[in-house]
Simulated assay, not measured.
Amino acid sequence: MTTIIDVAKHAQVSKSTVSRVISGNGYVSQESRKKVLESMEALAYSPNLIARNLQSGETKTIGFLTQGFIDPLGVFLESFISIAKNYNYYVTLYFTDGDKKKEIDALNQMKYKQLDGVFILTRANKWEVIEPYSIYGPIATWHRIDSERIYSSYVDHYSGYSRSLDYLFQRGYRSIGHVLSNPENLNTKARLRAIEDFHKEKNIPLKDEWLFQDNTRIDNGKYIARSWHKMANKTDAMAFYTDSVAASFISELQNLGYSIPEDVAVIGFDNSEISRLMHITTVDYSIRHQAENSFIYIHNQLNSKKIAEREISVSLVERQTVPFKNDCTSSLD
């Protein structure tokens, strides 16, 4: 196997010169660089990246973990890769398909010096299983998690969801259905508190049939639409925890012969591309800045030069799926 010493002898330069050409660090004359590159090609030399990573202690690569495709993935990944590129980092995408072992294998890449850090968009293992891997490199997530070892770029879903409900109320809606995610998620618990507080404040009874659970996102918008279709007393508005499920709900209701928003108002959450394409009123909670802050945390843990985090804000984006009801003319502050 060809070594760096073989390249140095063939090019008639020092070993350190070859090393500087390979690493890109340090001065090398144009003549020497050309001789080294020609010798590497002639000898079919390939740098041992694993050995280099072990020696330098860094790979300049961040792992991006997700179980599979979800609606916010495209925006989040694009933003994460963009800021990583600006600071000379690569991003490797891992689809775990919800397989706990695949996720652990990816986390172990930090242990084996193949990754400098990891971002988790959606996880398969429990946090107590993931946390110990932070000794090998920084870990960040957009999930809401109370941990001293894992960074969370979450936003307050209580205030965002409360704003959705107030907006619906001010537009004249009183019977509101709520589509929630995994009940174990802290964001779901925050939304439930917002729902309970909203109904108490407005003195509106909360009916169990108004609460819909969605754990998979896959075709559940269709299932929820069919459940709404069968309701004896249908809600006049539906609030969703994510735009993709709201879009699926709208599509299935249209297949069933309903008109949106004439038959039911719909509000989403994410301000993703699908909400723009389908003109869904939604909540924007700075998903791009969440992605950037997640990278910034990992970067700052790995480097002495620190980057300032981006400011995160929550805003409501008005489109076509929540009109005024019953000639209500009030507006959101």
Score class of each variant (00 low, 15 high):
T3G: 12
K9E: 11
K9L: 14
H10N: 14
A11D: 03
S16F: 02
S19Q: 01
G26S: 08
Y27K: 10
S29E: 07
E31D: 15
S32G: 08
R33P: 13
K35P: 03
V36S: 11
S39I: 03
A44T: 08
T59A: 10
L65G: 13
T66W: 11
Q67M: 09
G68I: 15
L73M: 10
S79R: 13
I81S: 14
L93A: 13
Y94Q: 06
G98C: 06
K102R: 09
I104R: 07
A106E: 12
A106V: 08
A106P: 13
Q109P: 06
L121Y: 15
Y133W: 08
I135S: 12
G137T: 07
I145T: 07
S147Q: 13
S147P: 14
S153K: 09
Y154K: 08
S159P: 00
S162K: 00
Y167Q: 06
R171L: 13
Y173C: 02
N182H: 14
N182D: 12
P183D: 08
N185P: 14
L186M: 07
T188M: 12
K189D: 09
L192R: 09
I195P: 00
I195L: 05
E196D: 10
D214P: 07
K230N: 04
K230T: 05
K230V: 10
A232M: 08
A232L: 14
N233S: 12
N233Y: 09
K234Y: 09
A237C: 11
M238K: 04
A246Q: 09
S248K: 15
S251K: 07
L253C: 03
L253A: 01
G257N: 02
G257V: 15
P261H: 04
E262R: 10
I267N: 02
R276P: 03
L277P: 11
L277H: 04
M278A: 10
I280R: 04
Y285A: 05
S286V: 07
N293C: 10
S294F: 07
Y297M: 13
L302H: 07
I307V: 08
A308M: 10
V314P: 06
V314H: 02
S315A: 08
S315R: 15
V317M: 11
N326V: 14
D327R: 11
S330G: 01
L332C: 10
D333V: 10
